[in-house]
């Protein structure tokens, strides 16, 4: 499989789409302006405006939290709690990005849940035990590729659920969500070196778990 994110040494940390110095796309700017207007209306008591923000970001939040929390019901609860928390603390929002602010709340909700889960473990990714679950595939994908992709996704999700929660959080934020080291350090409240170390150790742990099934990944 080709490396989708080639990374020359030293440039990786700032080459992600979410990097702070990345150029602002017109769509992002429009979305940011829309968000500011909706926040202002929500602060004036317009619940509909807040629900428009929920509609805009609930898929994003769910995708993020569901990868961090290996239980889809708990992930849904965490997302709901994140939106509750956002509504409760909307007055403390100071910009510049509502999306960034909401992401931070969602990551915190997921991390809180993982801490609680450490005390009371549950089975990982119950939706993966459901054979009807399939990853999205293109219309012209051949059946063998679909099956392989499904198997690969299943194996990867199970391996992700098996590694330490802090390593999973760092890997999901970096590899899946595209945040850079600095942003992850800020989101998770640890140092840059700790983020790097968690990502390195997490990748080695994933590789150790998936060692027997690497043929799926080199297909």
């Amino acid at each position: 499989m080709d490396d989708p994110r080639p990374s020359p040494p030293g440039e990786r940390a700032t080459a992600t789409p979410a990097a702070a110095d990345a150029p602002v796309r017109p769509g992002d700017e429009l979305a940011a302006r829309r968000d500011e207007a909706l926040v202002a209306r929500a602060l004036d008591g317009d619940l509909g405006a807040f629900n428009q923000l929920v509609e805009a970001y609930q898929d994003l939040c769910h995708a993020l939290v569901a990868r961090l929390v290996p239980d889809v019901d708990q992930a849904s609860d965490a997302v709901q709690e994140a939106f509750f928390s956002a509504y409760r603390n909307l007055r403390s929002y100071r910009g510049p990005s509502f999306r960034g602010w909401l992401t931070r709340i969602a990551v915190n909700a997921a991390m809180d849940l993982q801490r609680a889960r450490r005390r009371r473990p549950v089975g990982p990714y119950p939706e993966l035990e459901d054979d009807s679950w399939q990853p999205p595939a293109g219309p012209d994908a051949d059946p063998e590729a679909i099956v392989t992709a499904s198997e690969r996704g299943r194996a990867l999700a199970t391996a992700l659920a098996a590694i330490a929660a802090d390593q999973r959080t760092a890997i999901v934020l970096y590899d899946v969500e595209g945040y850079d080291y600095g942003e992850i350090a800020e989101l998770t409240g640890v140092s840059l070196g700790t983020v790097k170390s968690r990502i390195h150790r997490g990748r080695l742990a994933l590789r150790a778990i998936l060692a027997e099934r690497m043929e799926l990944f080199h297909h």
């Binding site: 490396d3 994110r5 990868r67 999205p136 992700l160 899946v176 990748r203 690497m214």
Partner: peptide, 10 residues
Amino acid sequence: AIRGALVALP
């Protein structure tokens, strides 16, 4: 390969 699969993780 794992990194590439993570990016495409559904």
